[in-house]
Each structure stands twice: as structure tokens, then as C-alpha cells.
Design a protein around this nucleic acid. Sequence first.
RNA 1: GCCCCAGUAGCUCAGCGGAUAGAGCAACUGCCUUCUAAGUAGUGGGCCACAGGUUCGAGUCCUGUCUGGGGCGCCA
Length: 556
Amino acid sequence: MSTVDSDIKAALVSALKTACDAGELPKFEMPADIPLERPKQDTMGDLATPLCMQLARMLHLAPIVIATTVVKHLPTLEAIGQAEAVKPGYINLRYNPEWLTRQVDAIMAAADTFGNCDLGNGQRVQVEFVSANPTGPLHIGAARNAVLGDAIARVLDAAGYAVQREYYVNDAGSRVRVFGETLYARYAQALGRDVPLPQDGYMGQYMADMANDIIGQVGDKYLQAPHDKAVLELGAEGLRRVVASAEADLAFMGIRYDRWFSEATLYSDGTYDRALSILRDGNHLEKHDGALWFKAIELGGGKDEVVIRSDGTPGYFASDIAYHYNKFAIRGFERVIDVWGADHQGHVPRMRAMMQALGLDPSCLTIILYQLVTLKRGGEVVRLSKRTGDIITLREVLEEVGADAVRFFLLARDADSQMDFDLDLAKEQSEVNPVYYVQYAHARTSSILRFAGDVDYSQGDVSLLTTEAEQALIRRMIRLPEVVRIAAEHLAPHHLAYYAQELAASLHTFYRDCRVVNPEPGAEQITLARLKLVAACRTVLARTLHLMGMTAPDVM
RNA sequence: GCCCCAGUAGCUCAGCGGAUAGAGCAACUGCCUUCUAAGUAGUGGGCCACAGGUUCGAGUCCUGUCUGGGGCGCCA
């Protein structure tokens, strides 16, 4: 489908050359890329190129003169029915209606693969997302990360990349120790011991709940063990539970990972030592103030960063070094995408410096930063404090508003855009909620096909689809490949949300203007053609929804 | 103080250097004996924060200013 664009570009180049050879245009160097865009208004056509305005200066000719000449020599193309040179110097192109309607058959043939492209060429890319500290249930802040990361993975998959989804489990840091201490304290308290919570411990009620749960299963055996051993084992047990609950929460919104990667293994399998020795050999490490530092400044990393603290324990950055060394040098990913909240934005320059110091290409690592979400309820900001344990969990929100609504709302904005997430609005099942608007369109197509019964419309003649509404709908449908391509190139799945609404709008307009199942005599053929159109549209809607990780309901 | 992100219709936001800047909601006016009205047609609404610059062409790129958010820990 996207070959149409390249055919058009080739045809434009060919027209330019013909005009040159005929002496109608002066000789000049062909531009490397031919710009092709969607006109702002439908009346202008389906595609347009401002090419001639760019050439005007070089050729010392008015853009409109060049455009007229190019149009004159434009070879005929199957997809293009009309080419026109207009005012400032655009060439506007209009699809050939017969070609357009044939795309319905093409979509039916492509089915679930419609919209895919081979942009990625099978390149191995890893998307690492969420990766929240496993010290408590996922809270709502993780939702945007989850939705964004998963949609990026889905889009890249559709764009022909070999995608691996990964969750990085921070099971090695000092916070895990504190987590174990907290759990131990709650455990002991529940068994009647007066053990204080650690400084900086986790205050949430969930820790006490977890302690009780563990007691229910294994009793007081950890009280018998030596303190350090108990903390360690209890911490590990708690961690297992927290990770399992994260996995369950994410699965609840349709997100599955290929791998849950343990930070601790970086230290046990030698990766950490290897990565660090590379930095040492490259003279990127320096000891002062009792700590070992990564010299990021000299590589443009903003500020130097502690690798090993003065107490001898490795900091989070030590793990990051080893982890990214593992991703590229050991597992061989050609490209890695990390999805981070904007509050980690200061680390990005250091990550680039680190890549360089490890002898890796910094451009192979893309860090997607998303702005933080303000949670609202009926227009009121909902304040959260993780410190006091006063959190809103992802699970609560999923159960309250539903996974589809959470996904759509958090996906419908550019990652760079700060946004409010209004729980009451997301929950509202009315016209103010675009989630239902889009899903309703899909349900409507299903409903029409249901109503039609067992009719075999596979031989429907799509060339009968000549009305404005029918053709407008097809125009929208065939845009999906382009939307996927753009979303993949920019790692910006929000384009899907806008496209979904446009496609739904076209379907609804078509529904109003065109009776599909028409029992009147003589309407048999148009009924079959329209049923095929509806089926194709249903495919495109479902595909779009699935790329966003949403369900496509048949009944609403 | 320095760094990052944003500032576009009353509100929430799209807008891959190109044409008369778009969508949803809100407001107003219409449309259900018809396959789902969770729908649809129309109207009004804009110095694209501000000031310079680059360009044939700037909401889009550059510089500065203002406003909002985030960051600048031997936390992650």
C-alpha cells in the first residue's frame, strides 16, 4: 500500500526528467527526496507535493510554471486519476476512484496484516518499560508508562521490527534491603513483637497485609531465624509477590512481557565486572571522596555520577551500566528503547555518555520521556503521597474505569504533553468519552454484519461504491499504513488515537448516508458491495484498536 | 542560577518547513416508522504566549523574554 507513495514520487521524477529532455525545463540536479503530503482540505485532493516551490529558486522559474510542466509529462499511474497544478505551485493528486474502491478487496485480502509495513526490516529492538521499583503495588503513575511502552511495542511490531518487551526488576539495590526490613517489622508486629519500622521504610498498608498473608502460609518461622537471614528471605518472598502482582495488573490491561530481567543477575554472572572493566580501561572512572565516579562530564554527560558509593556498594548507575552493556553487547539488540518518566530526564545525557564509554553507539539507545500525569476526579486534583503510603494503585483505577478507557486516555496525547487524567470522565459512558465513540463504530460494523446474516458478500463488486460517503470512508481506511509508519518512526502512538476517531467518524457518516442491507429489488448487488466495505472497515477499526491494546467489542 | 518539556478556539488537545491553522467537548440550530441516536448535519468561536531572526514560505527551525511543569542527592 505504501508503494503507492513511492510510485508517485518516481512518476514525479520521471516527469521532471522528461521535461528537461524536451527542453521545457533547464537541466538541474534531481532532489534526493520528493515531498508528498496530505492537503489540508479534502477539496484539494488526496495527495499533494510542494516540490515545484522548492525547485523554483534553482530553476529561476515561477513554481506554477514548473508544476504545469510536470503535470503535462506525468506518466499515468494506476492509483492516480487526476493531477492538477494549482495556485502557488502545488501539484494536487486525486485517487482514481476505481483504484480506490479496489482497496477494499486489498484490505480484505490483507486482513489482520493490513497496516503492516517493513520499515524495521526485522531489526531486533527491545522496548523496556514500566520497570517500577518492586517495593509495592504498581501505582497509577506507572499507567502512562505501561500504555506508552506497550503501544510502541505493538506499533514497532506492525512496522516490521522484531520486538522484545522487557521489565527490569530492581531486585538488587538498597531499597530492596529497606523493603525486607519493613516487611520483617510488619511480620514481627503482626506476631506481637515490638519491632519498629525502619527509617525510610514503606508505610503503606499493603506491607502489613502482605506480612499477614505470609504468616497465614508459613507461620512464624522467620522469627526463629537469625534477623539478617530472616530479612533476606522475607524480602525475597515479598519481592516475588510484588512482582507477581505487577505482572497480574499489567496482564489485566493486556500487557505481557517477554522477559522479566533481574538486576541481581548482573552482579552474579559477571556482567557488572566486565562492563566496569571496560570503563576502567577507557579511563572513564575516577576515585575521589571515597567513591568511584563515572566521568560523564568529559563525554558531555552533564555531571559526573557515582558508580560505587564510599561504603563500597554499587549505586543504581552501576546497574544501569551493566544492564545496557548486557542489552547491546551480550544480547545483541540493535536498538533499545527505554520508557521513562520525565522526572528521570536529567539522566539522559549520562546514558549517552555511558554508551559512548562502553564503545556502543549512543544513537542505538532511545529514551522516551513522558510528562507526568495529574490525576483528577471531577475536575479536582487527586493528591498522592507515596511516602505516607497514600497511593492510588493501578489496579484500583483499572477496576474503576476499565482497561480500555485507561489505555485510550493515556495514549491519546503526545508523550511530551503534560496531561490530566480525570477518572470521572474516563468512566463516563456518554458522548463526551471518545473511547466509546471509537468502540461503538466497531460494534456498529459487527451489528450490520450480524443483521445481514449468512450472506456471502465475498464476490461483492466494490466498483459500485461510488458515493461520496463510501469513498471518503475508503480514503480513511487506506491511511492506516501511513499512520502506523508515522507512529513507528516517531515512536508516537498517539497518532493512532486520532486516526481511530477519524475513521470512526467516517464510518458513522457512511452509516447515515448509505443503507447497507437493502431488501429492495435491484439492490442486491449494492448490498453485497457495501457489506464487503463494512467488513473491511471492521477489520481496519479492529486493527487500530488492537494496535492501541484496546478491545474491539461486537456489541455495546 | 543551570538543564529538559510545554504554552494553538471557553476547556482538553492534534498539527512529519508549505495552501484559507484542525478535532473532541462546551454553546446554539436541525435530524430517530429505517441495519445500534454511545450516532449525525450545521453555526459561532484564533495577534498559534511575546519580541527578534533564518527561509521563496514559520504554529513548526534559531536566539532572547515571560508563564506553567519537571530535574540539578554517595535516592532510583
